[in-house]
Nucleic acid binder design. Structure first.
Lengths: 200, 200
DNA sequence: GTCTATACGAAGATAGAC
DNA sequence: GTCTATCTTCGTATAGAC
């Protein structure tokens, strides 16, 4: 996980990876404390990064950091989805939900979705558009997977949208209520839905 | 809720209502700009209130303002629900969705849910608990309405949770994507669900 | 009940040394 | 590439006059 820190020629770049660490930290902070709580100070403290390198790695300041965090969050969702290619709809739904359950479990119900955090804070217009693009991409990807799994396109899109909306909402409910129950209930309903939808 | 503060007996209180205006403004700001954007400065500007009266009306400072905003948001949801007492589940769902659609329409897709905004920002523990209580209360109330409408209690609770989760999520998606389509899709699915659930 | 003035700290951002 | 120092803006909060 750490760098070789090579010396001579032909070697890999120094790879301090401070930037990457900061982006990961930003995603985590967004998920747990929102945009407000994702100050450079907090990111630095959480990732043990040198203060002097903030504007070296992020000349665009905080917006650039947030955009980078959105990209990372987006990818992590997409990666999970790709892994379910070829599976039937209910399995795709199950895996998608498992990603979020893992987030809730590991954080002891203190973390949510970084993309949602940015959407809700909505300070910057560019950031809102970026978040919207991510949600749209997720929806399209899920739709494709459901269609590949045998569903007709209209049903596939409807299922994709409600899976994403309900999951995002469920994460918020479980976080606020400090209980996994809302998430469990939503999971039960979504799974049975995917099965009956899949029949079409 | 407020104290008479009167001098002599029987007279109406001065009713400047500055406090009430500020709370309404705070709810709106929370829904559109999140906790970060709901500074006293913004609230004052938005509600055209006198700066000097902030700590007169809210001795507890910003947390007190946010708690008051949560209470108001909670009530507005509950009021809408009460109005559907005795109706069948799909009508209850329809009315609940109509409340959120109105919010999206009137704000031209720029507003979301104030309770969610507080949950996601999660600065203060008391505020998170308060938000959780509201979600739980909404869920219980919806469950009652569905049960009264003829559903068995387990189905009623499951339907209540997914309606709230999916609606909250749909509002976020539509806001971020600047399109009512995600909300429309979720509405379609939830309504057909309420109908088939209602049969049990 | 509302005003002004002000203290205080946090956060974003820049400049120049090392 | 990282450091320190500094500037500015903003938001919360208090004090005391009107």
């Amino acid at each position: 996980m750490d760098k070789p820190e090579g010396s001579s020629a032909g070697d890999r770049p120094p790879r301090t990876d401070v930037r990457a660490r900061m982006v990961v930290g930003a995603v985590r902070l967004l998920a747990t404390k929102g945009v407000e709580g994702t100050s450079f100070g907090e990111v630095l403290k959480a990732t043990d990064s040198p203060r002097g390198s903030i504007y070296h790695h992020f000349p665009g300041g905080k917006p650039e950091l947030l955009h980078a965090a959105l990209d990372l969050a987006s990818e992590s969702g997409l990666t999970t989805m790709e892994a379910t290619h070829g599976q039937p709809p209910d399995v795709v739904v199950e895996r998608f939900l498992a990603l979020w359950r893992l987030l809730l479990d590991r954080s002891q119900l203190t973390a949510g979705c970084a993309v949602m955090a940015v959407t809700v804070a909505a300070t910057d217009d560019d950031l809102l558009v970026h978040a919207g693009t991510i949600f749209r991409t997720w929806t399209e990807r899920l739709t494709d997977l459901f269609a590949t799994g045998g569903m007709d396109v209209d049903s596939a899109r409807q299922l994709a949208v409600i899976v994403i909306a309900a999951t995002e909402g469920a994460v918020v409910l479980s976080r606020a209520e400090r209980s996994a129950k809302p998430f469990d209930d939503v999971e039960t309903v979504l799974l049975s839905m995917a099965k009956s939808f899949g029949a079409r």
